[in-house]
Amino acid sequence: MSALTLRLREEPPERLDLSGLCAALRRDGPLSIEKLPVGTSRMGLVLADCFAVSGGDASDLRIEGGSPRLDGVGAGFSEGTVTVEGPVGQRLGAGMSGGTLRVRGSAGPFSGVGATGGLIEIHGDAGERAGGAPYGAPVGLNGATLVVRGRAGTRLGDRMRRGLIVTDTAEDHAGTRMIGGTIVAGTVGAAPGYAMRRGTLLVGGHGPLISGFVPTGTHRLVFARLLHGILRRLAPDLAGLAEGDLERRAGDLATLGKGELLTPRR
């Protein structure tokens, strides 16, 4: 059986909400999804109004022709593979619990919110609060792995609770209000870890630091060796960050202060 393929007919005339797609596939199978409501306006668009559907293997879902107006792609996804050839909108992989979600384009804000398992890979840039919590959400990323090959926006991993985020570059306020988990970045902007309670930031370079982080010495950490093996697989260019001695700062001491900012020894 060939991959279940959704080919976008044209740029959507409104934002489309695909957050119910994975649940519908699990519940009713691929035959029923053409009538799945996806519109967000009074026009009442269903999936078949915007996508040509072919194939039938729901464990290999392909979306050909992305758009920044496709929200909730891969939301609630639990097993198999989803591949998007193009950009997507907000809340990519929200609440995902397993499987692999690949976007060969950029993503809007709040990628991976509430995702408890699986791998989300964004080949382009990610919008604000990737792996972070939008308004009203209790936590951001919650156990999944999020890889951003391009540039991540502000507040990467805001209120993240568990899991791993890897990116080459992140803007200001990476790791704000973190509750737990790990963020690895080649460089981050200003004020990383603001109001961070627990968790780990491992960065090659950073903008101005807040004074809530205090040096606690240079360490060779067993955790870093384990992380090095994972990074070699996910992002070989960044694996070197977890090699050798690491300078450790504890913070944010304005709050609980059980988080840490690690940088390679100069």
């Binding site: 807040i210 809530g212 202060g257």
Partner: peptide
């Protein structure tokens, strides 16, 4: 934001601003 964090940390006795 930074000054506010310093103040909170100082009040809790965790920072010396």
């Amino acid at each position: 934001e930074g000054r506010l964090g310093e103040l909170r940390g100082a009040l809790a006795g965790r920072l010396r601003p």
